[in-house]
Simulated scan of single mutants.
Amino acid sequence: MPKAVRVRQTGGPEALELVDVEVPAPGDGEVAVDVQAAGVNYIDTYHRSGMYPLETPFGLGLEGGGVVTAVGPGVTDHKVGDRVSWYTVQGSYAEKLILPTSDAISVPDGVDTDTAAALLLQGVTAHYLVASTYEVKEGDPILVHAAAGGVGLLLVQLAKARGARVLATVSTPEKEQLAREAGADEVVGYEDFEKHAREFTNGEGMAAVYDGVGKTTFDGSLKSVRRRGFLVLFGASSGAVPPVDPQRLNAQGSIYLTRPTSKDYSSPEEVRWRTAELFNEVKAGKLSVRIGGRYPLGDARKAHEDLQARKTTGKLLLIP
């Protein structure tokens, strides 16, 4: 019987259990997939902890890549043997999975399955952040927090491809090297980063600050934004930001504050656009996807511990 990671009661990494599961045959508009790699994302820790509530018990993980092993009635866009990836299917920490064909994205030749599994959720996030939430333009100064993380490394590369000047924050010398390799113009630590942001821009401030850290960086991020600039809060790895008085946005210079989420940037047309651009950039050698660790499926708990302890860089994968 195939195995999958389940959460019966929300909590810490100890809440993750590897259990036997029954996987039905694919129904109308569905395909069955042998999962070859599942992506580990920070949102998974929010689901596991209950910060983003789901009805228990539930399967964990949203993202992966694998091979189609069966197709349900009416399926014409995929066939047995096709390689597919996905980033919106709950329960992806599993050996076998049933996917709606609307969520199954074909993996093109020239992109290996591990890379596809590591790319999509964070890649689509990075894409909408620089292409849609705030459309980065040639010469824009931007600040990317946690620039050596999975989203951070992709954000730096995509922003540089658009001509941005990038200031990056990291926590260790190893992460500094990774951020520089991704193209960051300058890399600093978290202490007094707002001072560095002003120096980087000759006192003007950043066109946009991309903040996935949250509680510990928010105040400094706000101070780093130029007049009528954007503070894009897209995560909370250090904890949730306390309630914000809108008057602070006024006082700082008519700042735009947004808290984007993927579902609002993922119409079918947008998904096709974003994933096609990402895969094309990978195939062309213009976008590097760093896989920072591969863990056996049964070690999902360890992967979560390492991720939340900020011991990792790039993307973590679970390998069934």
Score class of each variant (00 low, 15 high):
1 M>H: 13
106 S>W: 04
187 V>Q: 00
254 S>I: 02
160 K>S: 13
36 Q>V: 04
70 A>C: 01
100 P>F: 02
312 T>H: 10
161 A>Q: 15
310 R>I: 05
30 E>P: 07
187 V>D: 00
301 R>G: 14
291 I>T: 05
164 A>V: 03
150 G>H: 07
6 R>I: 14
163 G>W: 12
170 V>H: 08
70 A>R: 13
190 Y>G: 11
78 H>D: 01
80 V>Y: 06
36 Q>C: 05
200 F>V: 01
100 P>W: 05
115 T>N: 03
49 S>H: 13
35 V>L: 07
34 D>N: 13
42 Y>K: 00
239 G>D: 08
103 D>A: 15
102 S>V: 14
295 Y>L: 04
211 D>Q: 01
172 T>K: 03
162 R>I: 01
187 V>S: 00
147 A>D: 03
237 S>E: 06
271 V>N: 06
232 V>E: 05
135 E>P: 08
83 R>S: 10
28 D>F: 15
208 A>S: 07
172 T>H: 04
146 A>D: 03
90 Q>F: 07
224 S>I: 05
76 T>I: 04
112 D>V: 06
266 S>Q: 12
230 F>M: 00
245 D>K: 13
202 N>V: 07
81 G>T: 02
192 D>G: 09
239 G>R: 10
194 E>L: 05
92 S>Q: 12
75 V>Q: 12
158 L>A: 04
273 W>R: 15
131 A>K: 15
36 Q>H: 15
184 A>K: 02
201 T>L: 12
141 P>S: 04
72 G>C: 03
212 G>S: 13
208 A>T: 03
77 D>L: 08
121 L>F: 12
146 A>Q: 04
200 F>D: 00
122 Q>V: 07
223 K>E: 13
17 E>H: 13
288 S>A: 13
60 L>Q: 09
4 A>T: 03
21 V>E: 14
112 D>T: 08
225 V>W: 07
53 P>Q: 08
184 A>H: 07
235 G>S: 09
128 Y>L: 05
77 D>A: 14
251 A>C: 00
166 V>C: 02
199 E>P: 10
261 T>I: 08
189 G>E: 06
109 D>F: 12
204 E>R: 15
141 P>K: 05
189 G>F: 12
89 V>D: 03
165 R>L: 09
190 Y>K: 11
175 K>T: 07
277 E>G: 08
79 K>N: 04
305 E>I: 13
276 A>T: 15
318 L>R: 03
146 A>H: 00
14 E>Q: 14
306 D>M: 11
143 L>R: 01
212 G>M: 10
260 P>Q: 04
52 Y>T: 06
231 L>H: 14
84 V>K: 13
237 S>R: 02
59 G>K: 12
225 V>N: 00
129 L>A: 00
240 A>N: 12
